[in-house]
Each structure stands twice: as structure tokens, then as C-alpha cells.
Design a protein around this nucleic acid. Structure first.
Length: 1039
RNA sequence: GGGCGAUUAGCUCAGUCGGUUAGAGCGCUUCUCUGAUAAGGAAGAGGUCCCAGGUUCGAGUCCUGGAUCGCCCA
């Protein structure tokens, strides 16, 4: 066992009022001076690696408190693993490309369209993007450092670097070589303002509740056919009237039942799904059903389109006819679905199935082209009202109303998205087994795997990769006029073909590079698109190292990461792109092992934080007031992180008061007293052994929970131990510290130093300060090895639990009797038997002192103080007796309690009779419960009770008064502003009985108040005090 | 409309394998202790464990349905 005596002498004095933010700034300085982060990596050189990947944020906006959340969790596990002996490299990274950056620059420039960007010049525009993307880099770095997130910021990877781009190209080439990169003509969510298609994860970011028109349109049947006659009207429903101008067909479910119905208000019969008659036409009594038939019966029926701008022939043979489809439902609308091939995914598929031609009369800026007559040039969404009016005036409208629903908008500019058939480059992620890769990942919380993420992967569609934008990794696809496609996988390959070695691979420079097509010799030029930024981030594992060009690590040495951590919104973002890129390149092996998935941060009322609501709590205001440790501690321990947080400064302050202050004060106390030479080798007590055993238990729990990525339970276990130290170990051991007991000092020091190690991953600043002052044998706690749990003394731990319970009961009894703890009493009578009694006897001194009684008397029989009643233990008996439990309970209740108590004490079984069989019950099966006798002041719980002898004799009363005098003098010391270790000369005057009591216990009094001299001849001008109505005058002079 | 999650004291949260009388902290009331602690201790008030069914000897816990909230998707 190590002695801390030497270290003690060297320890700095500790300010109990220490400001944590100030302390943290000092610790940061020390880390800098001692180069601790780098030292922690050097220390583990050659050790087995434990791989962490930083999901790159974009630094073009200031970091918020939710970034502190993810950065706190990105820090705790790497710190822990480092202490466990792994080499944990932590490279920072920045996501540099993408629309957010372009939007910000557009705002700066006061422009808002692609034309304006090209007018401005792509080279200059991208140069501005390059600057703007790091506009808040300093803020990010400052915050990262301030919260103690150890990350290699100098060596951070950047997705805009040429080396990074080249690795991304390499990956795309690999994918193309597997025939998984293709250009498709698909309906994509498209932002007409940004002029680009959006990926599904981008669409997910922009759903808004909006009110759209909901229109029911009547389409006149042209020829008799099947159950229908010319002039009948097909009813279709849509919430996008602007697509009606390019209506190409009507879809029905072949198996659904439709009706031809006559209403009171319309001349012609109408056609719709039977199930929707009432919803669409109202009062069913006023509707006459003429025919009922399945949808298949009207296959091929011709109708007049709602608008005549585009002739049926434009769509081919089946233009403006009824088609059979599998996506029609009778959930809403009419059961007949308006189909505009260019503007819906289902529509497009159906059109392809029936061989309809794609006709798209909407230009890329979202306005109608010249084919749409009077609407040409108008933004489609703005034309809705006029189109509806047009239908109404021509008798084609059944009804138009408002319809509130959630509709996707552009996540950056809030423009409503259009679904739009466009050529676009895809990665065939449906051809790789993403589910198999996910299967091997361990998610925290578990349900993400099969739930949110797994369900989403099951419905995975091909990855729409291309963006018709400027600031991004250029799609490395060149195409000649013959349409031959060449995918370039490196700068060197491009140089070989074109003779150009790119310095900057971005647009517009890369756009100028051409070469002769290998297949036909014609000139190949690059396609104009850049790629989805999520592909950039998904390529981060190898691109951050410029692999495979650097040639240091193979893919299977790079993958998988041991740990990644991001917020829940990344299920469709980085979690997906990492998984997909890995699966595309290396198959179904897991890309990452453990994922901690964090929840959202809401304000204290559960509202989203937003600038417009003014409820945003910034990271700096919290850190400046409470410190980074406080914020970290809150995130780690206030709740399970994936459930999200109701965030308020008050909640953080509570953690400071209840945990950090308690820890700090315990630490400060440990530096107040020095061991006396004579007591340096004092023997360890049960209390010492208890503290060390509890420490071992805590090490076990914290290690176990951190291994399971459960910071919450781990942190709470440390807090519980710190509370045990502060409110029990130190409280019960104070006198030993005053006296200079070496064993007590060593125990407390050992516990605190070990706690500082356990806390190092959680609250790295306070932990390091405590370690540095109390031990300091290493330059930082973060350079130490994680503590090993020592042996535990389970019997002693259990005994202490019983003893503390006994104290609690005794104090409750005092409270009930209104006898202050200062007043000593003769004895406490404890009812306990067997191991409980052994436990209390073993720790009798602790119990006596805490209760301030001279003696403990044990009563094994309940009879003297109360009587036992019996209760069955359902937990043990339930599984054994099952349905018979009610009879067992009755049998137990009818046993003689005294007899059972005797039997159980002697470890003899108790028999009950049930259904003609005898059963033996043991001590675990029956609980003895105290029932009090009348007339006794006692507190009981379970089988265990404490009663107090309240009789006072003169001796006890004098001692009680002496304690009151001590209490009063301590108050006077404090009022006089003395340090707690100052010696005094004490002069008392006043009530004779008080003075007599003080005189009788003079040595005790002097010892307690650190008096080097006590005089009882005061002249009455000391500080007045009143004890039980008696007057005392106290004068205190520093001695 | 679908998926996932949540709902336990005024507030923030625990609650293991289904087991007796559901816990902690904060806040509140009363009392108390103090030679580290703006702390600690005791007592009190505060609960239809979202609702309704079901399974079970026994349900906060398992099942089914529903409500509300959040996120995601249509």
C-alpha cells in the first residue's frame, strides 16, 4: 500500500471556493506546457490501436451547444481507451464542400441563381467558397480546445484538399469498375431555386407543414368502353394542380372496386372508388350507384385531358388513357390517380412500364416552357390558383379546397421541391448488401439497428450522387460525343490521358481538361456535375489518409472503426454514407463496430432551440459560468444521451453543486491536515477497509459500463462513491484527520487519486488538477494507466450498509423524540439478530458516535420492543409454488412468528403444509417484519429496529451542555473570522450551570475548539450566546 | 398514412429476470448537524407508473389496441 505522506507535504493549498472556469484555464495552460495530448499518444506508440473517426462538421457557421454534446462523447471514450493502454489517434476533419457553403457565398454576393454564379465566374465563386468554409474555424478550434476535446486539429483532414478529392475519385472509379455507377433518368426531388437535385437525406431535412390546394378534377370519357359511356367523368384528385397541364394518364388499381355513379348535382355519371364515394361526393343518399366493377374493367379507356396544351399523341399510344397500377390506394383522393410522368416517382415508373414518352414542359428554373401557352414563363407553384380557376370555368372542377400536409422543401433555401424527371448519376446501392453490414454493427441505443436505421436500409434506393452545382468534388466522369463514358480514378490517370496535371481539381479548372476517347477517338469532356457531399464524408476513412495513393494502409487495415459517435440525424447522413461507401468498396464487412447515437437538445420547456424563438443557449455562456467540466458532466450523467436533453443552465448548475463541489470540497479537506509522525503507521480501520472496498466496486462498475459505452451509469457510479466518501467516510473520520492518523490520510488520498483517474475521461480538468496536486507522479492523470480494481470485502460492505441503516433509524428516533444529537444518551437498543447483529457489533463505534450514545444494547428477541409478523418472499417462493402462492402466503401468515424467528436464527427450516405435502422454507423465504409495541420510541424497518433510552442523568446533561458550549464557541470562532486551524485563548462567563458543565469537560472543550487556554473568569463583555435559555458570554482571542 | 422512440412525484430522472408497501435528486414545509462542504442528516407533503383490455398466483415491467409528444419517412 502506497503512502501519500510525502506527496501531502508537497500539495498546494486548495481554495474551497475555487472557480471552475478559472481552474480549467490554468489546467489548459499546463496541458500546453507539458504537451499532454501528444504525450498521451507517444505513450501508447506501438500499442494496439483503437480507432475513432471524427465525422466532419462544416465550419462555415458557429458551433452550438449540440456540437459540445457530440464532442464530449467523442472525447470520453478515446480518453478512456487511451488510459486502458490503446493507441487512439484522433484526427479532426472538416466537411468543406456543398450547397450550404454555396448558399452562404451567394448571400454574401447578393445573388441567388446559377445564372448569376456563372456570370460572376465559377473560379472566383469557388475561391470564395474555399474561404468561406473556414469562416468559423477559429471559433470551432477554440471551443474544441476549451471543452477539452482532444483532437488533432493541426493535422485535420479537409474534404477540399486535392489529396482527399483524389481518394474520392479512386473510390468512384472502383464503384464504376463494378458497374455500380450509372446515369439514370429518374424522378428526383429538385430545388428549382438552387437548380439541383437533392438526395433523400437532404430531402429529409426540409419537411414543412404547408397548405396546398386539394382539387378534384372531372375528366370526360371520349368513347364508350366496358362499363363506361362517352361523357362519363373520371374523378381524379391531386394536391399539385400545376402538374395537371402535363397529365399523361390516369392510374387505377385493377382489383379495387370502382363505381359509376349519378349525383344530384352533376349531369354526367362520375367514376371513382366505391370506398370513397361518401368522402368525395357527400351524402350517400343523394348518390345513385349505376355500376360496380373492378378497376381492370376500365383499362385503356380514353379521356379528355384537363388541359389541351399537350396532345395525347405527345405521350404515345396510351396517352390520356386509364392504366393499371399497383400503387393506387383507396386511402385518400378518388381511387383514380392523376399521372404526370415527369413529376412523380410512381408516375415515372408506370409511364416506363406502358411505354409512355416523357414530356416535361417545366424548365429547370421551375417555370413552364412555351408549350404551355398563357402560363409559359410562370413559376409552376404560382400558377395553381389560375389553373384551378381555368378548370372551374370550363366545368372540369368538382371541388377545390385547402389541404394541410407535410411537404418537402429545400433544406437550405426553403423553396418547395418539385419532383422532376432528370438525368442524374446514381450509385446502385441496391446492389450491395447494406443490411448485412449493419447486422454486425453494435448500436447504442440498440433499437437503432433494427429500428430507425435498419428499417430505412430495408427501403434503400439507389444513391442519387450527382449535383448540378459548383463547389464540390467534381464527378470524375468524362464523356465523348459518341456517348462513351470514361471514369477517371487518379490525377495521374488524367494526366496520362490529357497531358494535364491538375493542381486544383475543382471546377472550373477540371472542366477544361479534355482527352481523346479511348473507344472512338472523339474528344471527351467532363460531365458538369459535382458529387453529393455525403459521399465525401463517407469516403473519409481512407481519403483522410490519401489512400490508396499513400500506400501505407490497406482498406482492411483502415476499416473498421472501433467507435464513432454522432447525433441521431446522421442515420441518413454520415452513418449511411460510411456504411454505403464501405459496402460498395469492400462488401458486407462492418465499417464501424460501435456507434453512439445522440439525441436532440431542446430547451427547458421541450421546445426546439431556434434563433426566432430566442431560446438558444450558447455553449460559451454555459462554459464561462460553470465550466466545461460541468457541461460535460451534465451531458454524461443527467440521462441516457440518446433520449435527448431538456437543456437549461440551471440543470448544469445543479450538477456543479451536487457533484463537482462535493468532490472539490472532499479534495480540499484532504489537503488540510497532515499526518503526525507518531501516527504515521496507524492501523487501518474497518472504515478504511470499507472505503477501499467501495472504491474497488466503483472501479469495477465504471470499467464495465465504459466498456459498454454507457457513460451515464459509469458517471453515476463515481458520483455515488464520491458521496460515500464525503458524507460517510470523511464525516466519520474527521477526528482521525485532526489527529494526524496516517491510515486515514492514505485511504482518502488513495481514493481521491483513483477517483481522479476514473473521472479523467469525464471531467478532464478537475480530475487532472486533483491528480496533479495529490499525486503528480506523472505529468497528467491522462498519462496514467486505468486503475485496476482491488479486492473487495463484501461482508464489510454489507455490514456498513446495515450500520448506516441503523444510524438512520436511530437519528429518526431522536428526531421523533425531539432530542438533539448534541445531547448524549445512555444507550440505543438495537433489535437485530444473526448477521445483522454481527454487522452492527463490528461497527459499533461508528454507530455509537453517530448516534451519540454511550452504549449499544442488542435485543435478539423482538418481544421487548415489538413483535414480529411474517411475510412470504414472493421473489423466491413465486417460482417455486406458482399458482399455489395465495395458499403459501396464508400458510406463512398463520405460522407462529416467535417460533419462526428462533428457527431461522438457528438456520433450521420451517415447515408448512400444503395440499397434503410438507414443504421446508428457509431464511430467504420468509421475512420478519417488526410490529411495534405501544409506548416505545422506536423506529423500525424490516426486521430491524432501534430504540433509544431517553432518560438523562446529571452527567449526561452536563455533557450535553458542554457540547452546547462547544457549539456556541465554534460559532464565535467563525464570527471572529478565524481559520479553522487557528489556536485560541477562550474566556467564558455567564450562567453557573453552563460554566460548571464547561469546567467539567474542560479538556474536551479545549480540544474541540482548539483552545490553548480556557478561563472561566470573564468580565461579561464577551459575545453573548444563549443555550437553553441560559446566558453565556464568549470571548475568543487568537492564541 | 407508415416506421422508430418516449410517456413514472411540481421539475429532472432511476426502476435489473414480472415479485410484497414504486425510488433518487431538485424544489417546498418542519426540525437538526457542522473542526471541509453555498454542503450533510431526519421527518412531512407530493404518484389513477398516459388510457383500456389481455396473459399471469402476481404487471410500472410482457402482449394487443388507443391517446399524446418527438424524430424519421410518405
Amino acid at each position: 500500500m502506497r503512502s501519500y505522506t510525502a506527496a501531502l507535504m508537497a500539495s498546494r493549498p486548495v481554495d474551497p471556493q475555487q472557480s471552475f472556469p478559472d481552474l480549467e484555464r490554468d489546467v489548459l495552460k499546463r496541458w500546453g506546457e507539458r504537451d499532454v495530448f501528444r504525450a498521451s499518444l507517444r505513450l501508447r506508440e506501438g500499442a494496439p490501436p483503437w480507432v475513432f473517426w471524427e465525422g466532419p462538421p462544416t465550419a462555415n457557421g458557429p458551433p452550438g451547444v449540440h456540437h459540445v454534446l457530440s464532442r464530449a462523447f467523442k472525447d470520453i471514450f478515446p480518453r478512456y481507451r487511451t488510459m486502458r493502454g490503446y493507441l487512439v489517434e484522433r484526427r479532426g476533419g472538416w466537411d468543406c464542400h456543398g450547397l450550404p457553403v454555396e448558399i452562404a457565398v451567394e448571400k454574401q454576393l447578393g445573388i441567388s441563381s446559377k445564372e448569376q454564379i456563372e456570370e460572376y465566374g465559377i473560379a472566383e465563386f469557388n475561391a470564395r467558397c474555399r474561404e468561406s468554409v473556414f469562416a468559423f474555424l477559429a471559433d470551432w478550434n477554440k471551443l474544441t480546445e476549451r471543452i477539452g476535446f482532444w483532437l488533432d486539429l493541426d493535422g485535420a483532414y479537409r474534404t477540399l484538399d486535392a489529396s482527399y478529392v483524389e481518394s474520392v475519385w479512386w473510390a468512384l472509379k472502383q464503384i464504376a469498375d463494378k458497374d455500380l455507377l450509372y446515369e439514370g433518368h429518374k424522378v428526383v426531388p429538385y430545388c428549382p431555386r438552387c437548380g439541383t437535385a437533392l438526395s433523400s437525406h437532404e430531402v429529409a431535412l426540409g419537411y414543412q407543414d404547408v397548405v396546398d390546394p386539394s382539387v378534384y378534377v372531372r375528366l370526360r370519357v371520349v368513347h364508350d368502353g366496358g362499363p363506361l359511356q362517352a361523357g362519363d367523368e373520371l374523378l381524379v384528385w391531386t394536391t399539385t394542380p400545376w402538374t395537371l397541364v402535363s397529365n399523361a394518364a390516369v392510374a387505377v388499381d385493377p382489383e379495387l372496386t370502382y363505381v359509376r355513379a349519378k349525383t344530384g348535382t352533376l349531369d354526367a355519371p362520375v367514376v371513382l372508388a366505391e370506398a370513397l364515394v361518401e368522402r368525395v361526393l357527400g351524402d350517400p343518399g343523394a348518390v345513385q350507384i349505376l355500376e360496380r366493377f373492378p378497376g381492370a374493367a376500365i383499362d385503356g379507356v380514353h379521356y379528355e385531358p384537363p388541359f389541351g396544351y399537350l396532345p395525347s399523341s405527345a405521350y404515345g399510344e396510351r396517352g390520356h388513357t386509364v392504366l393499371l397500377a399497383d400503387f393506387v390506394t383507396a386511402q385518400d383522393g378518388t381511387g383514380l390517380v392523376h399521372t404526370a410522368i415527369a413529376f412523380g416517382e410512381d408516375d415515372f415508373r408506370l409511364g416506363a412500364q406502358y411505354g409512355l414518352d416523357v414530356v416535361n414542359p417545366v424548365k429547370l428554373d421551375g417555370t413552364y416552357d412555351e408549350r404551355i401557352g398563357r402560363y409559359a414563363g410562370r413559376f409552376v407553384k404560382d400558377a395553381d390558383a389560375d389553373l384551378i380557376e381555368d378548370l372551374r370555368s370550363r366545368g372540369r372542377l368538382l371541388r377545390a379546397e385547402d389541404y394541410e400536409h407535410s411537404y418537402p422543401h429545400c433544406w437550405r433555401c426553403s423553396t418547395p421541391l418539385l419532383y422532376y424527371a432528370k438525368p442524374s448519376w446514381y450509385i446502385a446501392t441496391t446492389q450491395v448488401d447494406l443490411l448485412a453490414a449493419n447486422e454486425q454493427v453494435t448500436w447504442h441505443p440498440e433499437h437503432i439497428k433494427q429500428g430507425r436505421f435498419g428499417r430505412w436500409l430495408e427501403n434503400n434506393v439507389d444513391w442519387a450522387l450527382s449535383r448540378e452545382r459548383y463547389w464540390g468534388t467534381p464527378l470524375p466522369v468524362w464523356r465523348c460525343e459518341q456517348g462513351h463514358v470514361t471514369v477517371i480514378g487518379s490525377f495521374e490517370e488524367l494526366r496520362e490521358r490529357s497531358g494535364v496535371l491538375l493542381e486544383d481539381p475543382h471546377r472550373p479548372y477540371v472542366d477544361d481538361v479534355t482527352f481523346d476517347c479511348e473507344a472512338c477517338g472523339e474528344t471527351a469532356t467532363r460531365v458538369p456535375e459535382v458529387i453529393d457531399v455525403w459521399f465525401d464524408s463517407g469516403a473519409m476513412p481512407f481519403a483522410q489518409r490519401h489512400e490508396p495513393f499513400a500506400g501505407e494502409l490497406a482498406l482492411d487495415e483502415i476499416y473498421p472503426a472501433d467507435f464513432i459517435c454522432e447525433a441521431l440525424d446522421q442515420t441518413r447522413g454520415w452513418f449511411y454514407s460510411l456504411l454505403a461507401v464501405s459496402a460498395l468498396l469492400r462488401g458486407p464487412d462492418k465499417p464501424y463496430d460501435h456507434v453512439v447515437c445522440l439525441g436532440l437538445i431542446l430547451d427547458e420547456h421541450g421546445q426546439k432551440m431556434s434563433k426566432s424563438k430566442g431560446n438558444v443557449v450558447g455553449p460559451w455562456e454555459v462554459i464561462d459560468e460553470f465550466g466545461a467540466d460541468a457541461l460535460r458532466w451534465y451531458f454524461f450523467t443527467s440521462k441516457q444521451p440518446w433520449d435527448g436533453y431538456l437543456f437549461s443552465p440551471e440543470a448544469i448548475g445543479e450538477g456543479v453543486r451536487l457533484f463537482l463541489r462535493q468532490l472539490w470540497n472532499t479534495y480540499a479537506f484532504s489537503t488540510l491536515y497532515e499526518p503526525e509522525a507518531a501516527l504515521a503507521d496507524a492501523p487501518a480501520t474497518d472504515l478504511d477497509r470499507w472505503a477501499r472496498s467501495r472504491l474497488s466496486a466503483t472501479i469495477q462498475t465504471v470499467t464495465d459500463r465504459l466498456d459498454a459505452y454507457d457513460a451515464t451509469a459509469a458517471g453515476r457510479a463515481v458520483a455515488a462513491f464520491v458521496d460515500d466518501m464525503s458524507n460517510w467516510y470523511v464525516r466519520r473520520s474527521r477526528r482521525r484527520f485532526w489527529e494526524g492518523d496516517g491510515a486515514a490520510h492514505d485511504t482518502l488520498r488513495h481514493c481521491l487519486v483513483t477517483v481522479s483517474q476514473l473521472l479523467a475521461p469525464f471531467v478532464p480538468f478537475v480530475a487532472d488538477e486533483i491528480y496533479d496536486n495529490l499525486d503528480g507522479s506523472s505529468p497528467s492523470v491522462h498519462l496514467t494507466d486505468w486503475p485496476e480494481a482491488g479486492e473487495r470485502d463484501l461482508e464489510l460492505e454489507r455490514a456498513m450498509t446495515v450500520a448506516r441503516e441503523t444510524v438512520r433509524l436511530g437519528l429518526a428516533a431522536r428526531g421523533a423524540a425531539k432530542i438533539k444529537v448534541r445531547q448524549p444518551l445512555h444507550e440505543a437498543v438495537v433489535v437485530a439478530a444473526g448477521p445483522e447483529r454481527d454487522a452492527i457489533e463490528r461497527l459499533a463505534d461508528v454507530v455509537r458516535e453517530e448516534l451519540n450514545v454511550r452504549a449499544l444494547r442488542f435485543v435478539a428477541e423482538a418481544g421487548e420492543l415489538g413483535s414480529y409478523s411474517l411475510k412470504p418472499n414472493y421473489r423466491t417462493l413465486g417460482p417455486r409454488f406458482g399458482k399455489a402462492m395465495p395458499q403459501v402466503a396464508a400458510a406463512v401468515a398463520s405460522l407462529d412468528a416467535g417460533h419462526v424467528a428462533d428457527a431461522l436464527r438457528d438456520a433450521r427450516p420451517v415447515g408448512i403444509h400444503l395440499d397434503g405435502h410438507d414443504h421446508d422454507l428457509g431464511a430467504d423465504d420468509i421475512q420478519l417484519v417488526m410490529a411495534p409495541l405501544e409506548g416505545y420510541q422506536l423506529e423500525r424497518e424490516g426486521s430491524h429496529a432501534v430504540a433509544l433510552d431517553l432518560e438523562l442523568d446529571d452527567g449526561l446533561r452536563r455533557e450535553g451542555l458542554a457540547r452546547e458550549v462547544v457549539h456556541a464557541v465554534q460559532g464565535a470562532r467563525r464570527d471572529a473570522g478565524l481559520d479553522i486551524t487557528d489556536r485560541i485563548v477562550l474566556t467564558l462567563a455567564g450562567d453557573d450551570e453552563l460554566l460548571a458543565a464547561a469546567r467539567a469537560h474542560e479538556r474536551y472543550l479545549a480540544g474541540e475548539v482548539l483552545a490553548v487556554g480556557v478561563h472561566f473568569d470573564g468580565d461579561g463583555d464577551g459575545e453573548p450566546a444563549s443555550i437553553e435559555g441560559r446566558e453565556l458570554r464568549i470571548s475568543v482571542v487568537r492564541g
